[in-house]
Design a protein around this nucleic acid. Structure first.
Lengths: 270, 270
DNA sequence: ACCGTCAACTTACCTAGATAACTACAGAAT
DNA sequence: ATTCTGTAGTTATCTAGGTAAGTTGACGGT
């Protein structure tokens, strides 16, 4: 096969520079599509798995075998294998070998990236519906670690696309005059800004959960859907570096506008 | 910025023992808690980020600086940095430095692992409600790439915990007498089995999506909830190595029994 | 038949060092 | 003032090995 350095044989003292040895990486056109060897190997092996050349359960060639095939050093190959491992495509068992894994639904992972991808370039408008200092309700006090009588800042935002609302955000922030947090939050005018602002500077950790809920009357009004419509509810809690909660809130977004999507298997869109 | 040796130089001996002959790896007690140096470094740097010692936006010490501090070779340090990068804790910019990243909601990732964790050991019962060969409906034919008049195998399963149903699964499988797929599927009696079976051997790829939907009357009956209740709908399509769809179906599961949860930031449970 | 030892193979982890490419900045040339 | 150029500092990648440790199976002793 020699998928790696097709040229063969002569390996110079050092691969990268010398213009004579025709290696994979020479395909760089000055500074455009340079691809590191380990990435190349990952792609090749992934493609073989995707094509069924290596089937689930099969044992891959040994590391030294791959080293010979691709004509790279063990370290480089090892790096490629590590990537395959934590993409979940293969398993390595010390002393036995490397094996192709089957798909396992339980390992699917979904990201919120799609949420911003969906609306990043679009004509998305962020409308600040409410911004006020309120006495903390029972649940708010619990989530933010406040005492009775303490206050919190309440924010509510509506996100629209072409005039149609698709997401609603409610948030309670600990009120701390020393922290100019709230003011900066008020400036936010983009979806991206909202998502980034939360974790901007002063936060160390976030805890997130997604549920499927029926729209309550109020939120239904904002989103212009009938009450009871099933929507996603993304709940978030942010903590500062001392572990104290700083912010708690929920995003409600319409499922017919946005779904969590992912793929499993060896054809990662890379 | 230079979060590096901010605290006034003396980072202290805490780092990696160093001393003279005392290296990280000496901490292994024969064969117990041996921890590779790069893992150790990842943990130390993560902890510093979590503690706010390195803040978002700060520039980390240079690689050679870290090499000196931890007394490891550039290669080892580089491996640690790579891990931090693809955990999303830091960014590296060639020629500029390594920087601590802030949190970004869009990068949160949720896995279905929790689904099996939640019910793996529990007294979970899988009840096969339906298993029949049916002419493919319009939508089924489209999803499975069947012609008019073709047949599909229809399966419906109900998952119960302590007698209470929490999930319902409907699936259409391409009917191929040569493939003993269906029979093996009929044997499945555990949640884990269902999740694994799908991707067991003959599948190359899976496409998954999650929506929030209102329960229809029939499914509501199975799940013993009022129609209209908001639930998660996990839709799946499996393809074989030729890219032909083989199976299509949906899991409906109750959101009050299961949520997608994750955390963001530098306190990875590890 | 059973069990322990050992060698071969494989993966896991690491070191030392070199080269390439990128960025920023200062200083020279225009 | 502007542009070019060199230099220092940074990360990115790779080579060429070596050591440690788990797995397997054959071999020999009991």
């Amino acid at each position: 096969m020699q998928a790696g350095s097709s040229g063969g044989g002569s390996r110079g003292p050092q691969a990268l520079g010398s213009g004579d040895g025709g290696r994979v990486r020479d395909s760089k056109t000055k500074h455009r599509t340079y691809e590191p060897a380990y990435v190349h190997i990952v792609r090749i092996v992934s493609a073989r798995i995707a094509a069924g050349e290596y089937r689930p359960g099969d044992q891959l060639p040994s590391e030294s075998g791959f080293c010979a095939e691709f004509d790279v050093s063990p370290m480089t190959l090892r790096r490629a294998v590590n990537i395959l491992v934590d993409r979940g495509l293969v398993t390595t068992a010390q002393g036995r070998g490397t094996f192709v894994r089957g798909l396992y639904l339980g390992e699917a992972s979904f990201t919120l990236q799609q949420l911003t991808d969906r609306w990043r370039d679009a004509s998305t408008e962020v409308r600040l519906l409410t911004a006020s200092i309120v006495p903390a309700r029972e649940d708010v006090a619990v989530m933010l670690g406040l005492g009775p009588g303490d206050s919190a800042v309440f924010l509510r935002r509506l996100f629209l696309n072409d005039g149609h609302p698709f997401m609603c955000h409610s948030e309670f922030v600990v009120y701390d005059p020393r922290r100019p947090l709230v003011e900066s939050q008020l400036q936010i005018t983009s979806l991206d800004g909202v998502l980034k602002s939360a974790g901007g500077e002063g936060f160390a950790r976030a805890r997130l959960s997604i549920r499927a809920v029926n729209l309550d009357d109020e939120t239904a009004g904002y989103l212009e859907r009938p009450a009871g419509t099933a929507v996603f509810c993304l709940e978030h809690t942010f903590e500062d570096f001392d572990g104290a909660p700083v912010s708690w809130g929920q995003f409600y977004f319409l499922s017919d506008e946005f779904q969590l999507v992912t793929t499993l298997g060896a054809d990662w869109p890379e």
